[in-house]
Design a protein around this nucleic acid. Structure first.
Lengths: 188, 188
DNA sequence: CATTTTGTTGAATTTTAATTCAATAAATCT
DNA sequence: AGATTTATTGAATTAAAATTCAACAAAATG
């Protein structure tokens, strides 16, 4: 393994450790030294890999923004299946790939308050709300989704998923809900 | 007005200002000097009213914990109406009384991560999850709610409400969803 | 093997925001 | 009014965490 690869590996390790801690305790409540200790490495060495704590966060948020759709492209299937299928995959991934899970939660946290503004901006740039609203509109035309402001429905859908994922992040042993529960918020 | 009342008044002003800022920007991203400026008063004077920033937060969270049920006691009405009615009142209050609204959001944030641990403990002590689960069970026996782990349903219900309220806190102009949307998560 | 580059540490420094404090103004009391 | 208590300010101090740095170790290079 080349030296460059080694470095990349180490960077990845730091990112994953930080991601876990940020999600579990929050960005501000996580000290650089906490991350260093968990990796493990000395506190000073962290700055050999990342310019600053904020850079580290930004790199994570950028990864998150880039990996939108990591759960799989399922755009072309009909609306009635889309959401159920998406949630099913999301929950499956979350059970097996803590990475996907944590990243989802982090992105949601970044979109809301409590983090440096730049992180927020990056997270907001990945606006899924509007695309989802389109799918909901399609479902409304098909007569399978309830009537009402499609964007508002979309916001509520994502807020719900975010809320539940955050809950799961904190309760190690909470199991995922039945996707149908959530989708029935949209269904007629 | 007595001096003591004056002081109480001022304290309340600080608390309300802090509550707004904590919800909008997050606890850690809000500086004491930000709160002072918004009240307005000098930074130093803040410590005449509160021992520390954390004390200020704790006082808010304690108020929140004490005012569980500010939205109204509606325990004795049948399950099928309980949730719809609760949400209706919550959204109404939120529209008219920013205080109720912000407090609800703050308590949810405190329950999750990203705040001093003591705040978290106080917020967690007001465990609504289990009481709600009981009402859901009642509804399940009545055959109006879907089957499944009542506690999990309860968690999902609150996570949903929390997620939507947080969204509303950030989008000044987002309007409240129809309570029915949320309740249909529980309904058969 | 000598040289250069990269990895690593832990202690020193800097930064930022919380907190204290001495000084002054305003209100209350006797 | 004079004395005493409370409110207020802004500058000085402290505390906590981020960040830098000098020194050394390990690995690669030639």
């Amino acid at each position: 393994m080349t030296r460059k690869e080694q470095k990349e590996e180490r960077k990845r390790a730091i990112l994953m450790t930080a991601l876990t801690l940020f999600v579990k305790r929050g960005y501000h409540e996580t000290k650089i030294s906490d991350i260093a200790e968990a990796v493990p490495m000395s506190t000073g060495l962290m700055f050999h890999y990342f310019e600053s704590k904020e850079e580290l966060l930004l790199e994570l948020v950028k990864m998150g923004a880039a990996s939108t759709g990591a759960v799989g492209k399922i755009e072309d299937i009909p609306p009635q299946i889309f959401f159920t299928e998406f949630l099913k995959r999301l929950f499956e991934y979350s059970a097996n790939e803590p990475w996907v899970f944590n990243m989802f939660v982090l992105m949601g946290q970044a979109r809301r308050a409590g983090m440096p503004e730049e992180a927020r901006n990056i997270a907001l740039s990945t606006a899924t709300i509007d695309e989802t609203a389109l799918i909901i509109q399609k479902g409304q035309k098909d007569g399978i989704f309830r009537q009402g402001d499609a964007k508002l429905l979309s916001i509520c859908f994502w807020a719900t998923v975010q809320g539940i994922m955050e809950e799961m992040a904190l309760n190690e042993d909470m199991k995922a809900p039945d996707p149908e529960w959530i989708v029935s918020m949209l269904r007629k």
